[in-house]
Amino acid sequence: MLFEQVLQQIINGLMLGSIYISVAVAFTLAIGILNFLNFTIPALYMLAGMVGWSLSHYGLPFGLSGPIHWGLALVIGIICAILASLLVERFTYRYFKMKHGDATEHAIPLVSSLGFLLIFEYLILIAHGSDTRGFSTPFTNLDWKTAGFIISIPQLASLILSILIVAALSFLLSRTKVGRALRAIAENPDAATMMGIDVDRIVPIVFILIGFLCGISASIFAINYHEVSPYMGDHVGTKAIAAMVIGGLGSVWGAIAGGLIVGLSETLSIYFFGASSAQITVWSLLLILVVFKPTGLFGHNAIGKGKF
């Protein structure tokens, strides 16, 4: 009986992990290509969820329309996350690169991105208050019961979707001209410029991908857990950073493993030690891992910049 319950927790943990995968990949793109720990990422995730909820609940602002279909609402939410991400690029990364020639060697862009996180969060708090909101979709009870286990079909689909997106991204990075240019920028932005790569034109692509990944992940969360809140980004943000480090900085496939491991340790920890234990378990695991393998599970043999 205990065994079966634990197995059910493992299933739940893997499903939860699928939420972390895309956000962890977003963090890993920013670090791996731009050497930029982009703290706005949790807010982009929250923005997509809250905009999606607001549109499906109230409709467009200023009474322009009634409530919008939940699917369309989430798509618009994802677009908002992408636009917000481009705003962050303009005022943190690009601004410092233009003014000071480099945006990666000091902490100011990082602090600026933290500023954007708080501003986005408080704008949503002013607009909608701090309550957790229900997000309803037609898929509330689509469970697949097999051998005594419950697997939610939307969750399984989400896990597969997350892995497919990461696979597509990995293909983009390794096989396309844009991906090659991105990897060149990751390794040596100066030399990339000398190859005729227009760094200023290509860097926004990274931010578009970041916004997209956050938006997808938030949509998956809203569909599977039927709720959104202005604080949803905070919960996923720290776990996704942990997932990135566990999987290996700059490793897209490592982010999948890291996301699933964090999801698993979170649900098992809650099952055995109670709700407050999750962060302690996840971060202890991370701290122990980095002592023995500072590059993470799938990181390359050097830590940090330029590892795709």
Binding site: N188, M194, K307
Partner: peptide, 18 residues
């Protein structure tokens, strides 16, 4: 300043980027 994390062929492809 060749790109050591990439293959020889990828380096040449980057040279032809423009």
């Amino acid at each position: 300043q060749i790109f050591v994390s990439m293959t020889v062929e990828e380096n040449l492809l980057l040279g032809a980027h423009s």
